[in-house]
């Protein structure tokens, strides 16, 4: 792949952001990872609104990693909007959360999550998860055209 796939990470916890990014580094993955800190920002980024209107700096991602529990617009709302917006709905969305709750799982899949992953507690766990994400979603999986 000439251009490594671009990932949008939607996460409000600073330490989880660092761990995730560090895990990508540890796994020696070259993906370009853009980070937004809440639901509002995530939607703005994806729709190219406000400060994100320059696609050369804020390109359309090939994959979205989405936390559920966020202040304001939460992960479910973001997912619902993505899946009901024509230009966004085919981008794979992976829920990355610490909740194993039945209700959360059911709702996520109901509104169109493509995958549901549990945030590992250990750093090794994180590294393992991002490796597997890369393996599956960028090597094995074939995206919809234009994604």
């Amino acid at each position: 792949m000439e251009n490594p796939a671009k990932i949008l990470l939607v996460e409000d916890n600073q330490m989880d952001i660092i761990l995730t990014l560090d895990a990508f580094r540890e796994a020696k993955l070259k993906n370009e990872i853009k980070v937004v800190r809440n639901g509002q920002e995530a939607l703005d980024y994806l729709l190219g609104r406000n400060k994100f209107n320059d696609r050369t700096i804020y390109p359309m991602p090939n994959l979205i990693l989405l936390d559920l529990k966020m202040p304001g617009i939460d992960g479910f709302e973001v997912l619902r909007q993505i899946k009901s917006t024509e230009v966004l709905k085919r981008i794979p969305v992976i829920i990355l959360t610490s909740s194993k709750e039945e209700g959360d799982r059911t709702l996520s899949y109901d509104i169109g999550a493509n995958s549901y992953l549990l945030k590992p507690v250990s750093f090794d766990g994180f590294t393992d998860v991002v490796k597997k994400i890369d393996d599956y979603w960028f090597t094995l999986n074939i995206n919809a055209p234009g994604v």
């Binding site: 330490m15 989880d16 761990l19 610490s98 945030k119 590992p120 507690v121 250990s122």
Partner: peptide, 10 residues
């Protein structure tokens, strides 16, 4: 879990 992740991870 969130703080634990920070402690454990870092």
């Amino acid at each position: 879990r969130a703080p634990l992740r920070a402690i454990f991870g870092f």
